[in-house]
Design a binder for these strands. Structure first.
Lengths: 108, 108
DNA sequence: CGATATATTCGATAGATGTCGAAATATCGA
DNA sequence: TCGATATTTCGACATCTATCGAATATATCG
């Protein structure tokens, strides 16, 4: 039996809930691909977008953007680090792998 | 560029939102595997659980269970058909494939 | 028909969520 | 130090969501 189907349901639901908003899913999708595997800032090689960049074309207030980014962070989907005035973000690839694996198993 | 990253974000978020509740994710997980590929009732060969069975061990009121099952149906994740007193449910495998593909692409 | 089984609908309610603008915080550059 | 830039925090508000119990609907069985 799959390790995903019986365990960590609460944790998985938490992640899916965070991605269950169109703008948060957009933000997350944009962020994917900026980093190599691994969860450190260094693995982004300076390619990580800052919070403001993630909100481009989203047509929401800065405070709303901040809220959404924080939701993604609380769910463990992204990490953040201040770089000067900006705060750069990158995806936790491990969590993405977990979610991808969860659905891949379900789909088998 | 992926067809998923740029398109259908709203639709994908709708599905993820539906799965973003622990009990709904449990219900959906239980339901997966009862049917072969395809979205017809017949493909389940009588193995489809009814609504009541899906609520076993969930410790929620029948009305709450009904609400959650309906949310999954509204999101297109499951289908339902009355069979006598019971209403049997089965997963829309196409939607599961889409979600699985969405994360598989993100994870590449 | 009346009783039982299964599931939905309804009405109520507490709490969560999304959104904004204003104010606050942090950093950088002149 | 002052002003500009980037982001967060706060307070307010409307809406959505999860939950329950009671009532209702549908089907089966005796």
């Amino acid at each position: 039996m799959s390790k995903y189907r019986t365990k960590n349901i609460d944790r998985t639901a938490e992640v899916l809930k965070a991605l269950g908003h169109p703008n948060r899913l957009r933000i997350f999708s944009r962020l994917v691909g900026c980093c190599e595997k691994g969860v450190t800032y260094d693995s982004c090689n300076g390619l990580c977008p800052c919070v403001g960049e993630l909100g481009k074309d989203l047509d929401i207030a800065a405070s709303t953007l901040s809220h959404h980014v924080n939701e993604l962070r609380r769910a463990g989907l992204i990490h953040m680090e201040r770089k000067g005035q900006k705060i750069e973000c990158w995806v936790d690839k491990k969590v993405l792998e977990d979610i991808s694996g969860f659905f891949a198993e379900l789909n088998n």
